[in-house]
Every structure is written in C-alpha cells, then in structure tokens.
Amino acid sequence: MADAQQQQRWAQKEYAALAAQFHPRPPIWPNVCRAFLVGGGISLLGQGLITLFQALGLDITGAMTRTSLALLAVGALLTGLGVYDEVGRFGGAGAAIPITGFANSIVAPAMEYRTEGLVFGLSARLFSIAGPVITFGILGAVVAAALRWAIVGP
C-alpha cells in the first residue's frame, strides 16, 4: 500500500513536470507594470481628492476620511455597473489592493447572492471575501499593537 502511494506520488510529480512544459509562463513583468500603473493611478486619484477636500476647507484628517469614503463609493458604483471586473482583469493587484478593490470585493458577492434573499443572500455574502481581510486585520493589529506595547512601551 505504501509502495502504491509512493508510486502514485512519483507519477504525479512526473506528470506535473510534463504539464509544466506546456504551461505558458504568466507575463509577470507586464502584469506587475499594469498593477503599478493602475494602483498608482488610483492613488493619484486619491491624492487629487485629498487636495480637493483640503481646498474645500477641510483639514488633512477630514480630507483623507472623505477621500476613503469617495473611493469606496466609486468602487461600489463601478462594480455595480460591471466595470470594475474589467479594471481588475487589466490591473490585477493594482485594482484589488486599493480601497476601491475592497469595495469591489464586498459588492461583487453581495450582488450575485441578492437572488438568495436579503439576509442569507446579500447580507451574509457582503463579507465573503472582505471578511477574512477584516478578521486578519484585527488579529494582526492586536498582535502588532501588543508587541509594540510590550517592547517599545506606550
């Protein structure tokens, strides 16, 4: 039995090696460049909004907060209009990592599970992708804050 399993593992390894010869390499550098451009572009838009809100008389705190809210709204709207998945297809991580991508990850599943009702459909699925982000964010924050507190002090 152990021999059969070992043989199966070898066969699987051999197959993976053969298959790899036929798999195109992902176009890593073009992908990274596009992620850079899209991510940088969204950040640039964010900076523009911050400047705009500051020009409207808000302090930097208020301006940044409103910028985040505006970008969330833009991400949600573009997802609803079916545009953001195209941005994501082009920009990859450049579309996923900005706060607009966070909005996309919330709206996309919620919209699709809307047909299963408001409670277990839409609402339960709002955070099916973003939930882990929040969970790990809080876990990470607790660990990072506790360690900093313990080592550096308040």
């Binding site: 992620a35 940088g40 950040s43 990859g92 900005p98």
Partner: peptide
C-alpha cells in the same frame, strides 16, 4: 502618491 501606491500594488502582483 503615484509611486508608493503603485509599488505597493506591484508588490501585491508579485505575490
């Protein structure tokens, strides 16, 4: 803003 935002996303794409 452009460079740093872009670099963070580029790092994500590498991941």
């Amino acid at each position: 803003a452009f460079l740093v935002g872009g670099l963070i996303c580029a790092a994500g794409q590498l991941l």
